[in-house]
């Protein structure tokens, strides 16, 4: 692909990233923030995998008669990153559950109000 269309993947990824970023900073609801973080993470995965792609290449599993493979290194990095992202998301959600039990709300604004009252 030539011209500006060659950057199309990256631009959409940036839009997705900013969508997630917006949810994290603009939404007071903690679960929504974690979902925003999840969108952000996934868009970073897409960025890496897009960079690994080679036009006309195939999945990096060696087979006779195939000469061009996609770059396996970003795949490895992202594969483990996905599992780690779930582990960190679970930790975040556990914190949300504890906050709900301690404050009775998962809305950031209400939590700040309660903190100031104390």
């Amino acid at each position: 692909m030539s011209g500006l269309l060659g950057l199309y993947n990256y631009w959409i990824v940036i839009i997705l990233m900013m969508t997630g970023f917006y949810a994290v900073i603009a939404r007071p609801n903690l679960i929504k923030q974690i979902i925003g973080l999840f969108i952000f993470q996934t868009s970073v995965f897409i960025l890496f995998i897009s960079m690994a792609n080679i036009e006309g290449g195939t999945a990096p599993i060696i087979k006779e008669g195939i000469r061009l493979y996609s770059n396996p290194l970003p795949h490895v990095l992202i594969l483990t990153a996905i599992v780690v992202s779930l582990a960190t998301t679970a930790l975040g959600l556990a914190l949300v559950v504890r906050i709900k039990e301690a404050y009775g709300t998962i809305n950031e604004d209400n939590i700040h109000v309660q903190d100031e009252e104390d």
Binding site: T42, I49, S50, A52, A59, H75, V83
Partner: peptide, 21 residues
Amino acid sequence: SASLFVVLDAVDVALTEAAIG
């Protein structure tokens, strides 16, 4: 995004994303 990973030749990643995400 898992489907997108298949299109981008990252089959291992797609499998992980589908199971986890």
